[in-house]
């Protein structure tokens, strides 16, 4: 469980805060009707939270494996699910999921310039094909759900 209570108004927001509200900055707020909203290259990529893992098949398999490790007869407190997941780390399926998540993270990091704290991120204009459709237009399907990592 993580509750992130973020900055007072007086403090500039941390990077994490910015990612948590990208949806608002890009999708809410006034658009003055006669004004032009410039077409922003890469804007769709930015909508992806860097900490979100593309779930899909890999995650389903990982969940299934975790389920099989749960001993329903025993005390639920005796083993935690993270331990169960940890125990599966040698499996190829987990590695696959991890790799996929890593790849997504890298793409997003590339687009955002994450890890470059003073904002001197390099250009990433070659990325726009990564996210052709808006996320709210139904990109979520039964085979490409997402979930977020709980760590920050």
């Amino acid at each position: 469980m993580t509750v992130i209570t973020t900055d007072e108004v007086v403090c500039p927001p941390r990077a994490g805060t910015l990612y948590d509200v990208l949806d608002l900055i890009l999708d809410r707020g006034i658009v003055i009707d006669v004004f032009l909203r410039v077409s922003l290259v890469g804007i769709e990529i930015l909508k992806i939270d860097a900490r979100i893992v593309v779930a899909s098949v890999d995650t389903y398999l990982r969940f299934a494996e975790a389920c099989n490790r749960v001993d329903l007869e025993r005390d639920s407190q005796s083993r935690t699910v993270p331990e169960l997941f940890g125990g599966a780390s040698s499996g190829a399926r987990k590695a696959g999921a991890k790799k996929a998540a890593h790849a997504v993270g890298q793409k997003v990091k590339g687009a955002l310039g994450v890890g470059d704290e003073d904002g001197e991120e390099e250009d990433s204009e070659e990325e726009p094909e990564e996210k052709p459709s808006r996320s709210r237009s139904g990109a979520r399907t039964s085979t490409s759900r997402t979930r977020a990592k709980t760590s920050r």
Partner: peptide, 11 residues
């Protein structure tokens, strides 16, 4: 203040 959405540009 009424925030603009990111990217609003006037002529």
């Amino acid at each position: 203040v009424l925030p603009s959405r990111f990217g609003v540009v006037a002529a």
